[in-house]
Amino acid sequence: MARIVAGVGTSHTPAIGAAVDNGKAGQPYWLPLFEGYEPAKRWIAETKPDVAIVVYNDHVNAFDFKIVPTFALGCADEFPIADEGWGPRPVPVVKGYPELAAHLVQSLVLDEFDMTIVNEMQVDHGLTVPLTLLFGTPQAWPCRVIPLAVNVVQYPAPTGRRCYRLGQAIRKAVEGWDEDLKVVIFGTGGMSHQIQGPRAGLTNPAFDKTFLDGLSQDPQRLVRIPPIEYLREAGAEAIELVMWLIMRGALGEKVEEVYRFYHIPASSTAVGHIILECR
């Protein structure tokens, strides 16, 4: 049986990818951040997942506004790297798992989550920066990846409760796949940040800490946070944190927090990271 064994929450700030790609990771501005991810790199090297389900959002790269899917599951056998305006990131192409993705779609739709099926899609920093943070700069990514793109760009994003329930349905779907697979699910984006308008640069470490605590101890409190609270307290783009609730929902009731890291700044964002193992 396939099993979700752990969840990873992490920011996906594009400047982090650019720092690695341009050889700046050792500079004083960036060093504390990358040092903070070293234990995570060791953890994932030991965990050796076969598949990563990466919950992220596209940033007007795969999807313009012709079609705005709330939940889109990548069912292709590979996903090219998007040119976001300065050339594609020099990272390996992302290999999918179309058989498992097709199974997930079928299970999720019957569980009343109407997924958009995506058979061709480029992936942007939202997906590739978390891979870089956890896996570094390999010649090929060490596991297969199923992208789950969530609309958090055009308001409203799906609610936290809806996201949590989708995670629960993903857990059930994965367990319905008859192959001995270790699956890790990533919830990405956040943490507090605002990257638009005169209020840009907003961060809220107290909000972020409460959110990280809630993930490990009381996710039911987090699913009740209304959208306005993310926007007002943690910045217009902090609504991305609902994607972490998909990850948390997919882990089952009991988890153990095995690592946490928090750092300000990466460009305009507060960077948060948590690893939760299923118990």
Binding site: T203, N204, R232, I264, A270
Partner: peptide, 11 residues
């Protein structure tokens, strides 16, 4: 940002 970003207080 290096000083921790903009506080939500007042915003």
């Amino acid at each position: 940002m290096l000083k921790g970003g903009r506080s939500p207080d007042g915003w």
